[in-house]
């Protein structure tokens, strides 16, 4: 564990807290992609199945349970409690392609062919593109609430900090080598490129995030 990784994890937790705040404070999930949240639940469940067979640390185990349960709770809020506010007509990204992309790469790039390894690899590739329905939704509506833009920013920051953590670990830990994690993580961070730019620009003007449509 190093400071970059810790800050990355905290940024991930903050993003989820912001999303919950947004939904509960406004009693609405307008502007939030149900498809992205669903993909994140699939990511967490497929990756953290190892919870029952591998013990790394109490920290890791607690985080795994926290990620699965909070994302399930968000889906519950979106799917049942505030369903009437869900903006279905703008959430039109075809996630079949993303699942097919992740599944294809999961069969080609795992460390070895065991169920847990293939699922872990699948989750890495799926996570790398899971934000696309959300970004697409933002792109078509052009604007979003402040909390929503903070949420997406914190989520992007998380993987960017992980990338710094990988560079740090590679230079300090002999034998540390995770090519699939690195490539998927860099792809994930790169997808936020445009968003980061407009987010920082809107912060500097002290205005709401506005994207060109």
């Amino acid at each position: 564990m190093n400071l970059f990784r810790l800050c990355g994890d905290l940024s991930h937790v903050v993003s989820i807290v912001l999303l919950l705040l947004k939904i509960r404070a406004t009693r609405s999930c307008v502007g939030i992609s149900l498809k992205t949240q669903f993909l994140y639940l699939v990511v967490f469940v497929t990756r953290y199945l190892d919870l029952f067979v591998t013990f790394i640390s109490l920290y890791n185990s607690v985080m795994k349970v926290a990620f699965i349960s909070t994302t399930a709770y968000i889906l519950y809020l979106m799917f049942f409690k505030f369903k009437h506010t869900y903006d279905k007509d703008h959430d039109t990204f075809r996630i079949q392609f993303l699942i097919a992309f992740a599944a294809a790469l999961a069969f080609v790039t795992p460390h070895r062919y065991s169920l847990l390894e293939v699922l872990w690899t699948f989750s890495l590739w799926l996570e790398s593109v899971a934000i696309l329905p959300q970004l697409y939704m933002l792109q078509t509506t052009g604007e979003c609430e402040n909390l929503t833009s903070h949420y997406i920013f914190a989520l992007g920051l998380y993987r960017a900090l992980y990338a710094v953590n990988w560079v740090y670990r590679y230079s300090t830990e002999p034998g540390y080598w995770q090519p699939v994690t690195w490539i998927a993580g860099i792809l994930q961070t790169a997808l936020y490129g445009d968003f980061f730019y407009y987010y920082v620009a809107s912060r500097r003007r002290g205005k709401r995030l506005k994207l060109p449509t």
Binding site: K64, H111, W177, Q178
Partner: peptide
């Protein structure tokens, strides 16, 4: 080179 295991990141 094979990847280092087990997965200790989240």
């Amino acid at each position: 080179r094979t990847a280092s295991r087990p997965h200790d990141e989240l």
